[in-house]
Amino acid sequence: MEILDSPAEEWTAATRTGEASVATDGRVAVVVSLDGETVLAVMPHSRAVRTRPGQQGAPRGRGGAGRRHPTSMRELLELLRSHGFTIDRGTRHIRVSRGGETYTLPSTPSDHRSLLNCVKGLERTFGVALER
């Protein structure tokens, strides 16, 4: 492959299975195992640059790499435990308490905004910042 022989840019990126080498000519990028034996992926250059260490993609208005708040219920509950909250799981709701105050979370969120709404409700109720 011509891109691998004389790439315009090269870097090592983390993948699901470990690390790999990324080579690009500015249009197309090729992800190759570190031993150079296996081509793992071929993708547009714009997608590959997101894996470059030390650099983030363009800022987005809708989350992405710069997301400040938890993005899953599991992550939210771990964050609450680390802040000293007590968590009681029921069949339909999750009760969060600390210092005599309580807040009830749904165990099955209803829409894509419900997690962020829960985070904001917890922040208002307990006066704590729940950022990762």
Score class of each variant (00 low, 15 high):
residue 114 S to P: 00
residue 92 R to Q: 14
residue 27 R to G: 11
residue 106 P to K: 02
residue 127 G to H: 00
residue 1 M to R: 08
residue 32 V to M: 10
residue 84 G to V: 10
residue 43 M to A: 14
residue 28 V to T: 15
residue 127 G to N: 01
residue 14 A to G: 10
residue 120 K to D: 02
residue 79 L to V: 08
residue 102 T to Q: 10
residue 70 P to Q: 04
residue 97 S to L: 01
residue 31 V to M: 05
residue 128 V to L: 02
residue 59 P to S: 11
residue 130 L to T: 00
residue 24 T to E: 05
residue 75 E to A: 15
residue 54 G to M: 09
residue 125 T to Q: 04
residue 82 S to H: 06
residue 68 R to V: 02
residue 111 D to N: 14
residue 122 L to R: 03
residue 4 L to P: 08
residue 14 A to Q: 15
residue 50 R to D: 14
residue 63 G to N: 09
residue 13 A to E: 11
residue 116 L to Y: 13
residue 100 G to I: 08
residue 8 A to L: 15
residue 102 T to P: 00
residue 62 R to Q: 12
residue 30 V to N: 01
residue 81 R to A: 12
residue 81 R to S: 13
residue 74 R to Q: 11
residue 72 S to D: 08
residue 22 V to G: 05
residue 118 C to P: 00
residue 32 V to K: 04
residue 21 S to G: 09
residue 102 T to S: 11
residue 47 R to G: 10
residue 85 F to G: 02
residue 122 L to W: 01
residue 38 T to G: 01
residue 86 T to V: 09
residue 58 A to T: 06
residue 105 L to Y: 04
residue 54 G to Q: 12
residue 63 G to H: 11
residue 44 P to Y: 03
residue 104 T to H: 04
residue 93 H to F: 14
residue 48 A to C: 07
residue 104 T to C: 02
residue 70 P to Y: 04
residue 57 G to I: 09
residue 78 E to V: 11
residue 52 R to K: 15
residue 111 D to M: 11
residue 20 A to D: 11
residue 94 I to V: 15
residue 123 E to L: 08
residue 7 P to I: 14
residue 37 E to S: 15
residue 86 T to K: 07
residue 35 D to E: 12
residue 131 E to L: 09
residue 56 Q to N: 13
residue 131 E to I: 04
residue 15 T to M: 05
residue 12 T to W: 07
residue 108 T to W: 09
residue 56 Q to M: 13
residue 121 G to A: 05
residue 38 T to A: 11
residue 78 E to G: 01
residue 117 N to F: 08
residue 78 E to Y: 05
residue 107 S to R: 15
residue 115 L to W: 12
residue 81 R to Q: 14
residue 92 R to S: 14
residue 100 G to L: 04
residue 130 L to R: 03
residue 8 A to C: 07
residue 126 F to A: 05
residue 4 L to Y: 09
residue 85 F to T: 03
residue 24 T to M: 07
residue 88 D to I: 13
residue 23 A to G: 03
residue 74 R to L: 09
residue 87 I to T: 03
residue 57 G to P: 06
residue 132 R to A: 05
residue 23 A to D: 05
residue 46 S to R: 15
residue 60 R to P: 04
residue 6 S to C: 08
residue 100 G to D: 03
residue 28 V to R: 06
residue 51 T to R: 12
residue 46 S to F: 11
residue 104 T to D: 02
residue 91 T to M: 13
residue 79 L to H: 12
residue 57 G to V: 07
residue 80 L to F: 03
residue 60 R to D: 12
residue 5 D to P: 01
residue 88 D to L: 13
residue 5 D to S: 14
residue 63 G to F: 12
residue 67 R to C: 02
residue 120 K to N: 09
residue 52 R to C: 11
residue 15 T to Q: 04
residue 80 L to C: 02
residue 88 D to F: 13
residue 115 L to C: 04
residue 39 V to E: 12
residue 80 L to T: 01
residue 21 S to K: 12
residue 78 E to W: 07
residue 59 P to D: 11
residue 108 T to I: 12
residue 59 P to C: 03
residue 34 L to F: 06
residue 65 A to F: 13
residue 124 R to P: 03
